[in-house]
Design a protein around this nucleic acid. Sequence first.
DNA 1: CCACTAACGCAACGATCAGTGCGATAATTT
DNA 2: AAATTATCGCACTGATCGTTGCGTTAGTGG
Lengths: 188, 188
Amino acid sequence: MADSSTQVRPGGRSAKVRAAVHRAVAELLAEEEAEALTLPAVAARAGVHPTTLYRRWGSTAQLLNDVATSRFTGDLVVPDSGSLAGDLQRWLADVATDVADPDTLAIMRAAIGSGPAGGCACTEDRHRQLGAIIRREQDRGGAALDVESAADFLLGPLYYRAIFTPEPASPDWARTLVSTYLATLRTP
Amino acid sequence: MADSSTQVRPGGRSAKVRAAVHRAVAELLAEEEAEALTLPAVAARAGVHPTTLYRRWGSTAQLLNDVATSRFTGDLVVPDSGSLAGDLQRWLADVATDVADPDTLAIMRAAIGSGPAGGCACTEDRHRQLGAIIRREQDRGGAALDVESAADFLLGPLYYRAIFTPEPASPDWARTLVSTYLATLRTP
DNA sequence: CCACTAACGCAACGATCAGTGCGATAATTT
DNA sequence: AAATTATCGCACTGATCGTTGCGTTAGTGG
């Protein structure tokens, strides 16, 4: 980790291999079953030698963690509509559309199954984004919301439907979710 | 499915094998990593020949589905405290304690990672239990709640914290969750 | 108690996976 | 441009997985 004796080299070739491997993981999870995601299979799909995967990632669990974090980080723009309700509604609707995609769900499922850190990798950046929205409302002079409880009431139902129920939530439903959540804050 | 040419035989030996295999799956998921859950490994732990697992379940995905459904079905008693709030609070607190157990979480994670049906297997009976609580309130003359939306607001945050955040929710937090949910119903 | 057969154990096989040593390639620094 | 070395490809090996055919055990109904 902090071993500076070996300097990292993120140049052209490594980046291309990384991108090809990530794409191969997403494609395999979209087509085949989850058990088919072995390192040799990913290597063959990516046009890379299996040894490379064994050395760079070591196991499918670490590979899935890497794929999940890079897939669910920086993919959504945090909106600035001028009001908290508008920001939350637009953002949560984007999250809903993202989470309604079957291929995206396959990545999330595989990441969750790879270990305790897999689920966190899917929502860490979502929490950061929600924190940014809430902080901006504070700068406007609005209420100081708790990020964790907001995540519970907004992301909770959304991800629950996506993972634990047959059909995921719609963007419209996400917007009504924001409305009812903000209503509970006004009437404690 | 409806093929009655082969009659099922759930007698003593089959039941013992099934129980031993289920216990072996739970133990392996509690100790080793998720990738270590192969059919030969489960067979060795259960004291059963691997061929039996290949024939009865075929793959780890179907085995995990079977384990999840039997683990999360009929394990909680639906309370009858006389009031909707009491029933929900007692029940959701039990769900919270169940979902806070690391071994239980490992089974859930593995089931989710095995495919789209894995997550449903973990919550199908929870929905039935919630439906029973709501139906009883109706019989008392109370409000007619929607089971799906109740699951969204009660089970959603609970399972979200369990799967997507480092530390799961506590039973006390589950009780406050019920209070705030019932408050939103009174002030629409 | 006897016949029937579902379910299990056993042995063997090909296929695939996981890992290692070594040389080649290319990114980075001087 | 040359030297350095992180990174990748290749060939090879042992271990493990997934599957099949066949005999044995033990539930189930007559």
